[in-house]
Design a protein around this nucleic acid. Sequence first.
DNA 1: CAGTATCCGGTTTGATACTG
DNA 2: CAGTATCAAACCGGATACTG
Lengths: 128, 128
Amino acid sequence: METMEETIKGGLGNEACQLKLRAVHDTLYVLSGKWKIEIITSLSFGKRRFMELQREVDGIGAKMLSKELRELEVNELISRKVCDTKPITVEYELSEYGKTLRKIIDEMVDWGLEHRKRLKEGCRNHQE
Amino acid sequence: METMEETIKGGLGNEACQLKLRAVHDTLYVLSGKWKIEIITSLSFGKRRFMELQREVDGIGAKMLSKELRELEVNELISRKVCDTKPITVEYELSEYGKTLRKIIDEMVDWGLEHRKRLKEGCRNHQE
DNA sequence: CAGTATCCGGTTTGATACTG
DNA sequence: CAGTATCAAACCGGATACTG
C-alpha cells in the first residue's frame, strides 16, 4: 500500500508537476538565449531601432542582437519594419502576441527590485 | 526644442526603462543557466532528492544538475539537507526566499500553456 | 545514492572588420 | 544605420569512470 507521500508523488501531484514543467519548458524555449528577455523588456517601452536597442541592452553586440531579434520575429513576438529613410532605419516593435509576455516581464522586474533591496540589506548587516 | 517623442525617450520614460532593464537583468543573473527555472519549478512542488530532480527535469545530466543546484544554494534560493540514511540521501527544498519566485514561475506556466494552445491552433489552420 | 573528475566535441558569444 | 562575415575564445554539456 502506498504512503500518502507516494500517492502524491506518483499520482495527481506528479502529473500536475509534469504538466507545469512542460509548460515552463515551452516558455523557456521561446525565450531562450542570453538577451531575449531584456530585448523584450526594452521593447515593452515602445518601438526601438536597432542601434537604440544595442545602446539600451547593456553589453549586447550587434551579432547577438541581430540573431535574437530574428528568432523573436520567427516566433511572432516582435515585428520588424524597414523605414525608407536615407540611411535606412529599421523599427522593431512588440507584436500583440509579444505583449502577452508582459506579465512575466513585470514579475521579473518586481523580483529584481526586491532582490537588489535584499542584497543591500545583507550588505548592511554584514558591516555591523 | 524637443519633440514629444524625444522628451519621452530622453526623459522620465527612458529612466523607467533603464531601471526596469536593470531589475530584469538582476533577476536573470540569479536564474541564469539552462536549467535553473525548471529546477525551481520542480522544487515548487515539494522536496526533491538529487535523483528525483534528474528524472523530473527532462534532459539534465548529473553534472549540470549538481552545478546549478550549487549556484541556487549560493544565492539562497534553495536549501540542501543531507539525510543520515544508509545509502546517504540529500533533500533539496525551496527556501522561503526561493518561494518568492513563485509568481514568475506561475506566469511562465500560464504563458507556456497558452502558447501551446496557440501553436496547435496555428497547426490546424494550416491544414485547412 | 549523491555526487566529482576528466576528456572532449559542439555551440554560443565576442571582437573586429566590412558592406549596402 | 543596420546589419553580415570571419575567426578565436569561452562555455556548455554529454559520456564515462570513479568515490564515500
